[in-house]
Design a protein around this nucleic acid. Sequence first.
DNA 1: GGTATATCGATAAACCCATATCGGTATACC
DNA 2: GGTATACCGATATGGGTTTATCGATATACC
Lengths: 211, 211
Amino acid sequence: MLQSVSIQTLQRLPDYLNCLKSLLQRNIETVSAKIVAESLGLGEIQVRKDLASVSSGGKPKVGYVTRDLVRDLETYLGYHDSHDAVLVGAGKLGKALLSYEGFREYGLNIVAAFDTKGSESDDDMQVKILPVETLSDLCRRLKIRIGIITVPAVHAQEVCDILVQSGVLAIWNFAPTHLHVPGNILVRNENMAASLAILSRHLSRKLLEDQ
Amino acid sequence: MLQSVSIQTLQRLPDYLNCLKSLLQRNIETVSAKIVAESLGLGEIQVRKDLASVSSGGKPKVGYVTRDLVRDLETYLGYHDSHDAVLVGAGKLGKALLSYEGFREYGLNIVAAFDTKGSESDDDMQVKILPVETLSDLCRRLKIRIGIITVPAVHAQEVCDILVQSGVLAIWNFAPTHLHVPGNILVRNENMAASLAILSRHLSRKLLEDQ
DNA sequence: GGTATATCGATAAACCCATATCGGTATACC
DNA sequence: GGTATACCGATATGGGTTTATCGATATACC
């Protein structure tokens, strides 16, 4: 049951969770796959398959118990036992991510941030910004396993190397560059350019249609 | 040639462009698909197919002419003729995106930003932050076709509705919520939670492997 | 100029994921 | 209590994307 969740399904799970949580707030105790599907713009069968892979089934004529689904999704996604992470690169984007409270409820706990410019403490940030020289040491001491890279593209690879050497296993890369890592390390690229490519093409076509 | 580019391929094109540009800076005039593949961690055949769909072919024993590929990729991705866009929600993330210069070179030109709190002019931002009441009017007047949503989730749908009613055709949504739009409008979700899901699962597995 | 080699391009197989169809089961209503 | 209905679950079909195999061609070297 746990093994066979496809990447695509996995990426939809947070959406289900969002949707179900908002239903729960409206005191909707049970929910059918059809409702969820319509609410998220997905196929009904797809929703059933996805939910089946992370939770025990629903009942005919009733649907799923909302609360149970939420619990199972959160458990599966690891939102209950949070992961510690470090962020490297306290520029605009880095600071924006640091001050985003939402990550904590996704089980991501940013315990420290690093930058070359050392610690310029900002108002509404929880963590201090440390000099990058201390990055490796801190990762080792706290057994950090997730690294977030928000440095300029030219420095991304060297930061990546430091993280990997310090025991980090998963990297969330916001720099617009490809990172080379050993096979057992996962890199997830937050690929803004790819998103733009899709938007841009859609637009070009639409504008072309209307002459 | 232009029609048959798959979504997956389209998303890889910006990576190719990045890679090729950096090769060009190192005065590498021609490049083989193999080199590009290794540099990006992709399959050799895949690279060839992708490149073939946007550019005229390479020569045996020599490879592709780097400069030509860059030009063709940029043309295909529309980086030459830029699209105007508006951004709604000048919180932390919104401001971070506003001050990111990189978008311009991707052909995205953010001409205005909006927020409920009106115009609090910030230091290094090019555009002023306007009251959201004027959003619809400006979109119509300037014929804006791309909207970027960085408001809290609860307000995302209403902002989305305004944008759509004002003629916007493509929406880049950073709010963690699903948006309902007419069929001819494209929504691209920048799904941070989905990325986290993938990172988190990888981590859980790795930690499990090592007990 | 002939041959070896590196590289591209096209067709075919394999794989993954989404969608459709069928059958089963619990609830609701008569 | 029986029957109709709404909904779930499993198996099968289909489309799209990746990967593999083959043949073609231009360059380089002898």
